[in-house]
């Protein structure tokens, strides 16, 4: 299969995204070069697409992905894979704030650390972070799993709905209304099944599974002081 090279530079992002889409539809593998950390690259890509972004990208890369396999060599800005429904996004380095925000399906694999509010409001799918997840990760996640192999920053798993945050390693502090559970062997097997295709399965890990304490679900304003940390 031929590889199509698409150069970013200072060209318009819509034009570039159109070229990426056309190449995806033609079944070509795509390499995007000279990305210069620009925003909105590779948004809304179709199932079956295979795209590599050289260097670092800006905000919303791979957003609304419907099934493409996207690889970013180095870092991403805000909200990589925002709103994606399917596919795989691999980030070689650090993923900025709100990675996988409001995603509904698919997997985001981050090889470095992730910034604050990783998986904010996610509604499905998996975010696997080999490093540490940042401040307030999982904030208001509705569903899906965030799996961190290198610990978590402060206010971890803050105000969850039915999302889960799994952490191997140190957790700086918990967010509000978090229950920390010992996962069952079956649940660990489910997580390992997510990690295995990424080559990250390791049965020796000691997991902490964080879920909502479900008290904040029934928030009443007279209880505000019990919740507000400010």
């Amino acid at each position: 299969m031929s590889e199509v090279i698409i150069e970013v530079g200072d060209r318009g992002i819509r034009e570039i995204n159109r070229e990426i889409r056309v190449a995806c539809e033609a079944g070509s593998k795509i390499r995007v070069t000279n990305t210069l950390s620009r925003h909105n690259l590779g948004v809304g890509l179709p199932k079956g697409g295979e795209i590599i972004f050289e260097g670092s990208v800006g905000y919303y890369c791979g957003g609304l992905n419907t099934g493409a396999t996207i690889s970013i060599e180095r870092n991403t800005g805000w909200a990589v894979g925002e709103g994606m429904t399917d596919g795989l996004i691999t980030v070689g380095g650090y993923a900025g704030m709100s990675a996988g925000a409001a995603m509904m399906g698919g997997t985001i694999h981050i090889k470095g650390d992730s910034g604050p509010r990783c998986g904010v409001a996610m509604k499905g799918g998996h975010i696997v972070v080999e490093g540490k997840i940042g401040y307030q990760s999982g904030f208001m996640a509705h569903s899906g799993k965030i799996i961190a192999l290198g610990g978590a920053g402060a206010s971890c798993a803050d105000a969850l709905w039915e999302g889960e945050v799994w952490v191997a390693g140190e957790v700086e502090s918990l967010g509000v209304d978090v229950d920390v559970l010992e996962p069952t062997a079956e649940e660990v097997a489910e997580v390992d099944a997510v990690l295995e295709p990424l080559g990250l399965k390791d049965t020796s890990r000691e997991w902490r599974k964080m879920v909502s304490g479900q008290r904040l679900w029934y928030f009443e304003s007279r209880d505000a002081n019990a919740w507000l940390m400010i």
Binding site: L36, S56, R74, N75
Partner: peptide, 22 residues
């Protein structure tokens, strides 16, 4: 505020520090 701005100054591959924490 944005990485693409500092890239106007340093366009080659180099280490980028993200001060994203609280």
């Amino acid at each position: 505020t944005e990485e693409q701005a500092v890239r106007r100054i340093f366009s080659g591959e180099c280490d980028v520090i993200n001060h994203d924490g609280p």
